[in-house]
Structure formats: structure tokens, C-alpha cells
Design a protein around this nucleic acid. Sequence first.
DNA 1: CTTTACCTTGACGTAACGTCAACTTCTACC
DNA 2: GGTAGAAGTTGACGTTACGTCAAGGTAAAG
Lengths: 253, 253
Amino acid sequence: MATQEWSIQEIARVAGTTSRTLRHYDDVGLLAPSRIGSNGYRYYDQHCLVQLQRILLLRELGLGLPAIADVLDGERDSAAALAVHLEWLRQERDRIDRQIASVTTTLRKLEGGEQIMATEALDGFDHTQYKDEVIERWGKDAWERGDDWWRSLSDEDKHEFKQRQHDIAGDFTQALKDGKSADSDDVQAIVQRQYDWIAVGWQGKRPTADEFVGLGQMYVDDPRFRANYDRHGEGTAAFIRDAMVAYAERVLR
Amino acid sequence: MATQEWSIQEIARVAGTTSRTLRHYDDVGLLAPSRIGSNGYRYYDQHCLVQLQRILLLRELGLGLPAIADVLDGERDSAAALAVHLEWLRQERDRIDRQIASVTTTLRKLEGGEQIMATEALDGFDHTQYKDEVIERWGKDAWERGDDWWRSLSDEDKHEFKQRQHDIAGDFTQALKDGKSADSDDVQAIVQRQYDWIAVGWQGKRPTADEFVGLGQMYVDDPRFRANYDRHGEGTAAFIRDAMVAYAERVLR
DNA sequence: CTTTACCTTGACGTAACGTCAACTTCTACC
DNA sequence: GGTAGAAGTTGACGTTACGTCAAGGTAAAG
């Protein structure tokens, strides 16, 4: 009546896997042998073989062992498990597709002789870097509006926007080097440009005095902003903050 | 002149990663801090920041840390590394696409009410299971011819082919139960069907006496074949072998 | 009785960190 | 100057699904 039994290697060959895998499935409680000899040997029967073949089938479809265990234990319908898995597979494929697109783009740029690494990386104004802070300070809507706006820009516009900021920061540094005070007219003129630049980034919403002061303080507190400004010259971030505070007092209040 | 230095957390925030990651990169030799304080603290400078941003850029493109290390050490051109990586990404996508197709097919069958697990899994005649043995015994060409032939069959033909084998094995088991001897005329008639069935699988090439005996012995020796035949009843494999040996002596020689 | 094949458990390695845990150091405040 | 809190350090374990030795006991064959 076919009450046959196999040793661990035999059933491994029957099912097309390895004995190590069988021991692993035993260890993690996925598939226990039907009998264990007094010598400790594992023996498997027909029922085990069926279970094992189910396991291997689901595994080939890419399911993880815990998910397979759920199906075998009857805690989850196999169709449901496969449907969930299918969704995961689709997301994985999308992720890889996006990576392929990124790599392809990068490769084209490299072939065009662009030095992506040194320049773009040093740019320091990848706006997505500030996502969490923006959301925390001004809410999720503000971030999404800003993000939409940023994405809507052409590469040229983006570059121009960042270039403006770069020039402003450079001028601040020069003024600092020249010994000008933060509330001098020269420096306040630079602050005016900074204010306008921010207003563009805010899509026309002009910062209040408090908001402007808050921004200036953040340039000093947040190491990412500080690094970006101090890149032009040490102390620039603090200098800009002082100038912004003076501007807020004199012009915005 | 912006000879700035950052602590580990600061540079982590600047670059948008974590201090743990920085320590890991230090551990694996990917990025060492520019200076280590007498207290053991890690400090990073501008150059480190640039390197780190290169690392993170490549990592986002999916490269592994060893590959990134090669690029940073100048041992490999970044374009070359990306090209290799792109090929790997494409293969991954293909693999996932195949899995998606498999899962989708399986899901459709399940919706159609088919009990894939219990039946197909128990079928026991997934011919790819025997690939290694076939190649070892009869060469690679034999396997490829057989594989092509098998793939060319429709699902119905495949089912019919397997059904024939199933019927034959069942008849052998019945004969064994009935106490018939392996060289009796009744049993030899079944062997005749078995012989014809094999010839179909060999695409008309009819086995010699030695080949036929060898096959019969393999049914007993190879646990996968033995399991398949003994599934019908214990001892069937050995009985079939005996019957095949008798047939080889009487008919084929 | 010995060789040979097969079985056992235990432990490390894999990719790239996340996450405690235990302990030391810096900074700020009273 | 003492102390709390933030930040730093070095381990070490966990993650996925086994592959791959290593050391030692068991079984089948000559």
C-alpha cells in the first residue's frame, strides 16, 4: 500500500533538492520528518513528500518560507498568498525598472563627458534632503506643493535657481571677508536678494518676519544647511543669519 | 577656506544617511574618517564628504559596496562598473518577469478550481528532474532532443503521455498483487506496452536489450524512479525490472 | 574487519546595515 | 564642580535561506 519511507538524501533526490535544505526546513519548523530513528536519522513518508513538493513549488514562485508555512498550516489560502506575492513582485519589477532608467541616464551623461560625481554631488542643494524638516516645520502640504513645483522645473531652471543661491552665498562670504557688518546697507541688499530667492522657492508666498528669522536660524542649526553655506567660507552661515535677523527687524516688521 | 570638519552625526545628516552606515563603511574599508580624535571620535572633512556622496549615489543606483570600492579606488571605471551593473539589473528584471508570469498562471489555474498542489506535484514525472542522469547516461544531445520533443507537446499530449505510464504502472501493480510472475504472458504483455511507451519518449528510437535492462535497473536504483513506481504499490519497481529483464531476454535478444 | 557512504549536530559566511547594550566623553547648566 | 543629557565608542545579534566545512557516530558492502 505504498507506505514507503525515504532517507533524507533519497527524498532530497526525489524532490530535487538537498539534504541540507531538508534539515533547514526541519529546523525552522516548516517540514518535520515523519519518523526519527533511534540513531537520530530522519525518515520521510509519502505525506512528507507531498508537502515538500508543495513547498518547493511555492518557493520557485518566489514565496518566502514564512508565507509558505502559512499556506501549509492552512492559516492562509494559497490563492491569497500568491495574490499578495504577485503585488510584491510587481513592485520589485517597478523598482528595478526605475534603477535601470537611472543607470542608463547616468551612463549617457558619463559618455557625454559629464563629471556627475564631483559636481552634482557637491551641489549640496538636493531639495529632497530637507523633506522631513520641511514637513515638520510647515506641514505636509507645503512639502508637496514645493516638490511639485520643483519637479515642474526644467533642468535649466533648476540649475539657474541653484546658481542664484550659489551667487548670493558667495557674495555674503565676500562681504564677511571684507569686514562689512551684517546690518550694513551693502549686506542688507544681498539679504534682499536672498529674500526674493526664497519667495521664488515658496512659489510667491513671501515669508513673514518670524519665518525669515526662523529660516536664518535653521541655516546655522541644521548641519546640512550650515555645511552648504560654510562651504563658501567658514562663518558664512552665522553671518547670513545675523543679516537676515537685521533685515527682518528693519524691513519686515 | 572652508577647511571644515564634521562629527559623524553631522556628516551623516549632511549626506542624508546614518552614523551607523558611516561606521560600517569605516569597518569595511570603504570610507575612513579624515581624522580620529584622541578620544576615538571620527571626524570627516570636505574630501570625505565628496567620497561619501559618490558612494551614496552609486548605492542608489543599486551597486554593491565592493563594486563601489573598486570605482573609488580607481581600479575600475565608473562607466564600466555601471555597464556591468546594468546587465545584472536587466537579468534581474527578466527573472522577476518570469516569476510574475508563473504566479499569474498558477493563480488562474487556482481560480479555475484546479488543485495544482495535490495532483501535479504528485505526478512524479517532471521530466526535468532526470536531466543530470539522462545527460550522464546518454549524453547531452539525447537530453536536448528529448527536451525539445517534450516542450513541443501540447498540455493534452503531455497529460496523455503521463497517463499512459500511470496506467501501465497500475497494471503492473495489479499483476503483482494477483501473484502473477514477471515472465508470465500477461505481465509480458504489459512490458510490451512499457517498451512502446519508452520508444515514444525516445522519439521512435527503440531501446536495445541492454538499454532496456539498464532502464529497468535504474527504476530500482534511482530513488526518484523507485518512488514513482512504488507509489502504486510497494515492490512495483523491482517487479517491473524483473519483467523488463525477462522481456529483454525473450524478445529483444 | 575495514572501507566507504551516509547520518548527526554545530558553527561560520553571506549584504548591508538596524538595533540594542554597556561604557566613555563632551556640553550645558546650576 | 557636580550632574544630566546628548553624542561618541566598540561589540554583538538579527535579517534570508540555505552552502559549506568540521568532527564524530552509524550503516551497508566486500
